[in-house]
Amino acid sequence: MSAEPVLTVRDLRLWYGTPRGSVRAVDGVSLEIGAGQTLGLVGESGSGKSTLGRGILGLLPEGAKSDGEVLYKGRNLVGASHRELRRLRGPELGLIFQEPMTRLDPLMRIEDQFRETLEQHESKLTDAEIRRRSLDTLGRMGIPPTRFRQYPHEFSGGMRQRIMIALALVLRPSLLVADEPTTALDVIVEAQILRILADLKENFGTALLLITHNLGIVAEACDHVAVMYAGQIVEEGPARDVFAEPKHPYTRELLRSTISLDTRELHSIPGAPPNLITPPTGCHFHPRCPDIMRVCPAKDPIETRHDGDRRVLCWLHGPESEIPPGGGEPIERERIAVAEEA
């Protein structure tokens, strides 16, 4: 990736404590995002995308624990105090949620929400500066200045989401985590928002982690894509290359089962994502993988790098030296029952 990454995550583990044991929602994840870069994070429901997004910002519930490194501009956020994290959130680290209505204070005018946000982090601003900065950011999102003094319920869903984005951007964070920012929106409005997100890097130079389960959105708005399965990133690389030639069987199957305008016949991945308290041994995808080999359930796969900036977590791509003799033989197996699905 590019020169000096804004965010570097190394061997991050984020586990939830539950009555039945630890849920390994994120289990050894590493990634990097450079300034002005957009990384798309995709995967099925429950693969740990939101946990990773929140974990990076230190927003995990009680009972969850983290381990590893989240380096933001060289500082490790794992283990940072609540106070320090709070100070960073906003001016440095921004977050956009899926449901904008629940995040905007319904009793406050848009103007006051901007004022509060700005004053909290940049106390020296004058009223005129606050207004200028807010209107400028809102204008870029297509929200007219005439509506600056209205309440959240007076806006439509798409406008609220744009206001949310503006509210996150008005502090000019260097890193923005957007968790399914368009899932609740209509296609045309979604496309409008995607345009805005794609323009972020030109306008603000923001590093963006875009979480979604829609591969189309990644293809549209991201430079890089990371595919997540059962708490791990199984493949990562430039979006264009990964989509053109997926290396990991899961990425390939996921692409095949996505229904698009070009779909001629339906395809699906057998089985369901595993529970993350006792994930499958070896490669977590082995119970569903069409290419399973003898080594897969026995040994944790080792990450391999290809073509400079692609990496894969799958025995099909080596390293050969680590595969025991005979490990490369395929395993035949009976069909998985239809109903064992997500």
Binding site: S156, D186, R195, G216, F243, A244, D262
Partner: peptide, 22 residues
């Protein structure tokens, strides 16, 4: 509507002249 669908094909991008508003 047809042009606004994000497709998992990086060669195809959503055009800029989409209908505005909601």
């Amino acid at each position: 509507l047809l042009r606004a669908i994000p497709e998992p094909d990086p060669r195809r991008t959503i055009p800029r002249d989409l209908p505005r508003g909601e």
